[in-house]
Computed example of a mutant assay.
Amino acid sequence: MTTSQHCFDDTERATIYRAIALRRDMRHFTPSPPLPDDQLERLLQAAHAAPSVGLMQPWRFMRLSTPPWRERLIGIVEAERQRTADALGARGAEFLRLKVEGLRDCAELLGVVLAPDDGTVFGRLSQPREMAWCSAACAVQNLWLAARAENLGLGWVSMFDPAQLACALALPEGAEPLGLLCLGPVPRFYDQPMLEETGWRHARPLSEMLMAPPAP
């Protein structure tokens, strides 16, 4: 029998679905002081409550919000931004007009890192690295939704050379950087995902994501 603490009423359920629907990958931030310690702790606790294969909890977070860190990391991101523009060919100039990061303006800048393999076998024997990546991504999604519930924006910046960023962060052997997370107040939340608002790309409907299995 399900106890009351595990039941959601209609209002709570609607709030959860609303947070999911209104989550956005944010790039525009309102310059702000660092988040209060208790608020940042709540957000990181939400991330840490994520599911993980074999309970390996492979996520690690680094607080990189100081001006020296921001400036150092902006150079790494900008180099990858230029490389991406070159790879896009005819759309390169259009891409360069997009805002792809908020490293300077966000209240907090966090690095999310995949920890070295801890030897967990349960659930990941055939896909050891892939399951660690999936588990860490769940932690980021938890953080994203918690931030949205706190009326804060979060943007996951993935434009960087992994080896260069790992060196900059002095990561131990076997650790990998997964992203730079821009977190903080925003001037507004996008009505649609930013890439849709700018006309770069449009989301496909759920119906196109449903695959029929072959006959057994």
Rank of each mutant, 00 (worst) to 15 (best):
I20F: 14
M131I: 02
G111M: 09
F61H: 07
D37A: 15
V100G: 06
G102Y: 03
P67Q: 12
R188L: 05
A90P: 14
V53G: 02
P172L: 02
H28S: 07
M1S: 13
P216E: 00
A21D: 14
P34D: 05
A87Y: 01
M131F: 10
Q5T: 09
W156I: 04
L125E: 15
F160V: 11
P177Y: 03
P68M: 06
A93C: 01
P162I: 09
G54S: 08
P216D: 02
M194W: 14
D9V: 11
L43N: 10
P177D: 03
A168T: 12
A175V: 10
V121C: 02
S135N: 06
E94V: 12
L55T: 02
Q5G: 00
A203Q: 09
R124S: 10
G123S: 04
A147E: 02
P36V: 06
L165N: 11
R97V: 08
M211N: 00
F122C: 00
T3Q: 07
L165W: 10
C167T: 15
M194G: 09
F189T: 03
P128G: 13
G155K: 04
R83E: 01
A175L: 06
A149C: 11
A203M: 04
Q39T: 15
L114Y: 05
V186Q: 04
H28F: 12
G174N: 08
P205M: 07
P68W: 03
L43E: 06
P116N: 01
P51I: 13
G75C: 10
T11Y: 02
L210G: 01
G54H: 06
M131G: 01
E12K: 04
E12G: 04
Y17H: 09
A136H: 04
P205K: 14
S4W: 10
M62Y: 06
E150T: 07
A14L: 15
L154K: 05
G111S: 04
L178F: 11
R27N: 01
Q192D: 13
A137Q: 02
A149M: 14
F189C: 02
A212V: 13
E196N: 08
Y17W: 12
S32R: 12
A19F: 13
S32G: 05
L169K: 09
M131R: 14
T66N: 03
L98S: 03
L35T: 11
V157H: 00
D37Q: 14
P33L: 02
C7R: 15
Q39Y: 03
I76T: 08
L206R: 15
Q45A: 14
D117H: 14
V121F: 08
P33D: 13
W200P: 01
P116Q: 06
P33A: 12
C182P: 06
D105V: 01
A136I: 11
A49K: 01
R129P: 00
L181N: 05
L206S: 13
G92V: 07
C106I: 05
C138M: 14
C7H: 12
A146W: 11
L154R: 04
F8W: 13
Q82V: 12
E71G: 15
L43T: 08
L35R: 03
T2N: 10
G54T: 08
M26L: 07
F122R: 15
R148M: 13
A19Y: 13
P205N: 12
G102M: 08
I74F: 03
P216W: 09
A87S: 15
D37R: 15
V157T: 04
A175W: 04
R81D: 07
